[in-house]
Design a protein around this nucleic acid. Structure first.
Length: 764
DNA sequence: CCAGTACTTAGGTTG
DNA sequence: TAAGTACTGG
């Protein structure tokens, strides 16, 4: 087990400094490590776990919780490289959500869920809420799904059950004051709907874990004794539900080590609670505290500038971060006339520096407060032919085409998953209309069963839908059942491929491919998902194939960071400050340093919000190793109009010793800006003198009468449509006013059209 | 059922 | 401005 010691003359702990080493070696009792930015926090955690195993602690007894999947994976790898992969595998390591979702699946029957429960993402949750709000006949402007979702999420994160919510006088008053008295009813109904669908949202994973540990002492007992050693990374980002899980699990042995930095807490807006750090001393009065204060990442100027900023916050645990590194250059501040100019200036500065020092583009990052700011930089970088990658935004798994296919998988694994069912029952088009679906939903509610049960047995659950539609629905159900029968035994890839084909999704995307590059991309995305599944299939052994059901257990908790392929490529990184947390770059450009943008306008009302913005600024500055440049624009386009901006107060908060104002910006601004203004508003130049559209409209209306009620259209007829041109009728359905024709148009593909409106000319 | 149009809204983001 | 949704007319 300890063979690595023989090979290396030096013990791995020797690579740590004194306080790092103390924190790593102190294995018993409650320990808190407050780790300044760049102080080697991950290294301490890694070595601590390696040391535990060296001390013959069984990896099976270790629970390590991280903030992201990526962090968990990297740590497992690093530990594996020190003590051997086999040992590392037995550690329970992952995010709260992934670790506890597994525990919940194992114990699902105790809390009234199937063990293959679906995990709803935010989109799914909001869609459920929208339905409920509509069902209650409430105004969806007062009850915006995202607002309601946020409110419910907060409640769950604070372990307030629907019943408690409805009875809490304070909450009732709050909702009354915000004119949303029905919130409690919506919350209750939402919980019921999810349970009926066999689904949990992300917050439920934490909520129900608490329920499980609270109501089933034997379960609590089991995990308390399994997880004798508990480690939590990024402790400042935990919420109350997470805090309580840890507290309960650690209660038996109290071997708990939390690592965090209060100065880098930037997620309170979604429930993270700095109090958890402060409470630690109350819960474990005998705790030991270690502070990691030596920064290995940045120059003296950067470290000290960052210190001078964070000093302005009132709420914080005192620590003094310092470094042995060189003094380095001062932080540069540049000013540009417009946001577009900011893009050009920063891009050319990067180009200059890159060719001067012959460094890799990977050494550069542009950080901003909001995603929309990326635009001006992307444009400028493209013009200069500088490779870049924008991080964040829509993730792979959120894309429509991916969600569509996954919905088939989800439905096959758990047919009660109502969101999945609604998503694909008529996609690709199989003539099951909105009205029919609505009727199904209402029926399911009134029979208090799931939509799936209804569509499987119209005898038992009569619904007022015409027979043609009913038989198409039945056909759909049969197809899903045939997938269902294979989901637990056939290997993931062959079933996935079959579903993609026989659902019609592949054909749908294939046919659209010649429409444009976006359609091609969609098709490729689905191919990529399938090849990912193939990989998953191949990694299993002969005896127990990895099934699609297995795949679905993992996929809901994956994010696009989990399938990084661009890591090696040479490019600049563009991202929000939030997503830069935990990363480091030689050169950081922090852009958009303006009042109302950073700090954000919405943070100006309360001190604590402003302090969070300041911590965000602290995080941004401390990403830089060697150089840090701040920029701001004097005017900026915001929602279609140009507004004038003032430099951020944060610039003033940096001790002037550490910054210099670049003169470059001034000279750049002068000559160019005037030109930009001319020519842009050429008033009424485009005014249309004669309007050809008007004419054609008239012509059309005259034609209309002649052939609308010509009902003698049959399959095989050649017809002409006003907008689609000539085509051939391939299918007819419905009667009278509902009569529809499916027509193949050589230039527009196949369309199903209501004859009542179609205005068709029969050609033969 | 399809497609064009009117209307609305705009933060950060992991699981 | 841009993007997404709801509505409406053919």
């Amino acid at each position: 087990m300890t063979s690595f010691v023989k090979n290396s003359p030096m013990h791995f702990l020797d690579e740590l400094n004194e306080s790092q080493r103390k924190a790593a070696e102190h294995l018993y009792g409650a320990t808190m490590v407050i780790a300044g930015a760049g102080s080697g926090k991950t290294r301490v955690l890694t070595y601590r776990i390696a040391y535990m195993i060296e001390k013959e602690i069984d990896p099976f007894n270790i629970l390590a919780l991280t903030f992201t999947n990526k962090a968990a994976r990297e740590m497992t790898e690093r530990i594996g490289s020190i003590i051997g992969g086999q040992e590392a595998k037995n550690i329970t390591m992952g995010t709260f959500h992934s670790v506890f979702s597994k525990i919940l699946r194992f114990n699902a029957d105790r809390i009234g869920f199937p063990n293959n429960f679906t995990i709803y993402d935010t989109q799914d949750s909001k869609s459920v809420l929208k339905d409920i709000i509509k069902g209650f006949k409430l105004d969806d402007k007062t009850y915006k799904p995202s607002n309601v979702f946020g409110r419910i999420s907060t409640a769950k994160n604070n372990l307030i059950s629907p019943e408690a919510y409805c009875q809490n006088p304070e909450i009732i008053l709050e909702d009354k004051q915000s004119r949303r008295p029905e919130m409690g009813r919506i919350y209750t109904s939402y919980m019921n709907r999810c349970q009926k669908s066999g689904a949990m949202d992300f917050d439920d994973l934490l909520y129900y874990t608490n329920v499980l540990l609270r109501d089933f002492p034997e379960v609590l007992h089991y995990y308390q004794h399994k997880f004798k050693y508990i480690l939590v990374d990024e402790y400042q980002d935990t919420n109350y539900a997470q805090y309580l899980i840890i507290k309960k699990l650690a209660a038996a042995y109290e071997n708990i080590c939390v690592v965090g930095d209060d100065a880098q807490s930037i997620y309170s807006f979604r429930g993270a609670n700095i109090e958890n750090i402060l409470n630690f001393r109350k819960d474990y009065p005998d705790f030991s505290l270690y502070k990691l204060e030596q920064n290995y990442r940045s120059t003296k100027n950067i470290v000290e500038a960052a210190n001078s900023i964070i000093k302005n916050n009132k709420d914080q645990i005192h620590k003094s971060v310092w470094t042995d590194n060189q003094v380095g250059n001062k932080i540069k501040v540049i000013r540009t006339p417009t946001d577009n100019e900011e893009g050009r200036t920063v891009s050319s500065m990067i180009k200059e520096k890159q060719s001067e020092t012959n460094s890799s583009y990977n050494d550069f990052a542009i950080l901003y407060r909001t995603n929309r700011q990326s635009r001006s930089f992307e444009e400028a970088l493209r013009k200069l032919n500088i490779p870049y990658k924008v991080y964040g935004g829509l993730s792979f798994y959120q894309r429509k085409e991916i969600k569509d296919l996954l919905a088939y998988f989800r439905l096959s694994a758990n047919p009660n998953d109502e969101e999945a069912l609604k998503r694909v029952i008529n996609y690709p088009k199989r003539a099951i209309g909105k009205t029919s679906i609505e009727k199904l939903i209402i029926a399911a509610n009134s029979y208090s069963t799931s939509m799936w049960e209804v569509i499987c047995d119209f005898q038992k659950y009569p619904v007022d839908i015409n027979n043609g539609t009913k038989s198409r629905i039945a056909e759909f159900a049969t197809m899903i059942k045939s997938f269902q029968s294979e989901i637990n035994n056939k290997d993931a890839f062959s079933l996935a491929e079959r579903i993609a084909r026989s659902s019609g999704i592949m054909k749908e995307l294939m046919d659209a491919k010649d429409k444009g590059p976006e359609e091609v991309e969609r098709f490729q995305n689905v191919e990529e998902l399938l090849s990912g599944i193939q990989e998953f299939s191949n990694s299993s052994d002969e005896e127990n194939p990895n099934t699609l059901a297995d795949f679905m257990l993992e996929v809901a908790l994956l994010t696009d960071a989990d399938q990084d392929k661009s890591e090696e490529i040479n490019h600049i990184s563009l991202m929000t400050i939030h997503s830069s947390k935990g990363l480091e770059f030689q050169n950081v450009f922090l852009v958009g340093m303006e009042e109302n943008l950073f700090p954000s306008q919405m943070s100006l009302h309360s001190r604590s919000d402003l302090e969070e913005e300041r911590r965000l600024f602290y995080v941004a500055i401390t990403r830089a190793m060697e150089s840090c440049t701040l920029s701001y624009a004097v005017s900026r386009f915001l929602w279609g109009q140009s507004i004038s901006c003032e430099p951020s107060r944060f610039i003033d908060e940096i001790d002037s010793k550490y910054i210099e104002f670049s003169s470059k910006s001034k000279s750049l601004g002068r000559g160019l800006s005037m030109k930009g203004f001319e020519g842009t508003r050429s008033g009424g130049l485009n005014k249309i003198s004669s309007n050809p559209n008007l004419r054609s409209l008239k012509d059309v209306s005259r034609n209309q009468k002649t052939n609308t009620d010509d009902k003698n259209i049959k399959v095989g007829f050649n017809v002409e449509h006003q907008t689609f041109g000539k085509g051939k009728v391939t299918h007819m359905e419905g009667f009278g006013a509902d009569q529809k024709a499916t027509i193949f148009f050589p230039h527009h593909g196949s369309k199903t059209i209501l004859l009542r409106f179609a205005n068709l000319q029969v050609l033969d």
